[in-house]
């Protein structure tokens, strides 16, 4: 095989990194197997389950569908960036059971919490539909999302 590795630099969890990646590597593989961040999970490898959700330049994406070299010069935020205090409400709501979907769920939920005005147009159940969970039946997930009352004036 004559594949050449590609050197890329990007921001990972607020810190710069530079490394050489296999051109076949997905962002998911890069995080899990090369960068030692296995918090991001693979549930399907086809963009359906959302277990691999990370933030890319501030928006949730499925890292199983991102070629690793596409994150060059971009910012990636993973579940490892999550503070324990940020999940207290989820702990009480029963957001996690087996935990396999949980890192993805938390990443999407954190983004909704940071963008509450989306909930004026879409329901939380609609916005969370890209995160499949087979354990909770979703009530625990929806109840775990801290939704500040949106400021209607600004809208």
């Amino acid at each position: 095989m004559t594949d050449s590795r590609i050197e890329i630099s990007f921001t990972l969890n607020r810190r710069p990194v530079t490394l050489r990646v296999d051109p076949r590597s997905r962002l998911l593989d890069l995080l899990r197997y090369d960068l030692g961040l296995p918090g991001t999970k693979e549930g399907c490898g086809e963009g359906e389950c959302g277990a691999c959700t990370v933030h890319l330049d501030g928006v949730p994406v499925n890292s199983c569908l991102v070629p690793a070299w596409q994150v060059r010069d971009r910012a990636v935020l993973t579940i490892e960036d999550t503070a324990e205090a940020a999940v207290e409400r989820m702990l009480d709501a029963g957001t996690t059971q087996c935990g396999a979907c949980t890192p993805g769920v938390v990443m999407t939920a954190r983004w909704l919490e940071a963008n509450p005005r989306l909930l004026e147009r879409f329901s939380a159940r609609h916005l969370m539909a890209g995160n499949l969970c087979r354990c909770t039946g979703y009530d625990g997930i929806i109840d775990g999302i801290e939704i500040p009352v949106p400021d209607r004036e600004e809208a």
Partner: peptide, 21 residues
């Protein structure tokens, strides 16, 4: 009582078989 391993799962620290080093 809160789920014992709950925080570990919520912040991505729980290590499943594919996560073991």
């Amino acid at each position: 009582m809160q789920r014992i391993e709950g925080v570990s799962k919520l912040v991505g620290r729980e290590r499943y078989v594919d996560d073991l080093d």
